[in-house]
Amino acid sequence: MADVILSLSQVNKTYVTRKNGRNRNVWAVRNVSFDLKRQHIVALVGESGSGKSTIAKLITGVERSDAKSGSILFEQKPLAEWRRHMREYRRHVQMVFQDPYAALNPLNPVNYAVGRPLTNYKKLRGQAREQEIEQILQQVHLTPVREFANKLPFELSGGQLQRVVIARALASSPKLIVADEPVSMLDVSIRAEVIGLIDELRTQAGVSFLYITHDLISARLLADEIVVLYRGTVVESGDAKTVVREALHPYTQLLLQAIPNPWAPEQDENFDMSLLERTGDDTGCVFRSRCPHAMEACAKTAPTLQPHGEKQQVACLLYSAESREPVNS
């Protein structure tokens, strides 16, 4: 499948932590599989601690997946092989983080931040380098370019800073950018500009994006496909519009209900408080302890991701062959 740029299949990551002198396994990522097509945007959505950043770290090679684990393929080549050409891999796969203030050195001007990868990866110097910097700043709409090139981070707004961070990521001409919560620290009024920019870069520069967020609205705005994570497991995935408008998994439905809807305040009252922060054990479905539809069977088997219709996959017994019809929803 040449149109798939990134493919995760049955990827696992376990962290070992020590608590009260005992080792404890944290299953940050469990059997995660999804594909990212060339020039597509996939949104990875889930609550805090669901494993989104861990997946980003596995893809960018910052962390290694468990030894007995599936594979991550970039351009059909396993990450294990890319590890021997990490420099080249980094050039193709760039990362953008949540906090633009922390991502940039406050003492270096914009042209330094954007120019460094040009020297590093493309060996550009002098005039050629200057031209490339201008071209990239143009691409992220930091105009007038000459004025912005010499600015220091404190002279820029949050949205402008995040555009500098994106410009820096673009400098190596990457094929894939992993963006971990790139807009969540920005005001709503300036989020749109960054979201619009990502969309434009995908269309015009042909960059693929893995867009990480806990916000389903921006996922729907930006992504072609959505992957919903809960406690390290993919519970639902598929076409972005379908997943949001016809959410199947009770967890996706909970995320949707949690979005305030000031135009229909009466809906708020129906929000089920008992669904908050319950922890379960490790057998069966990961969402079982918080699920309003939990059945006996859910404690016994962990459902796997199964196709549902043309555009969606869901890991939930409510939709499995044995009980086709959802109990109530």
Partner: peptide, 16 residues
């Protein structure tokens, strides 16, 4: 700036 996520068509709106 606050679209309804379930609408048929949604777009990102900001304040330039």
């Amino acid at each position: 700036c606050f679209p309804d996520p379930r609408a048929e068509i949604i777009e990102a709106v900001g304040i330039p």
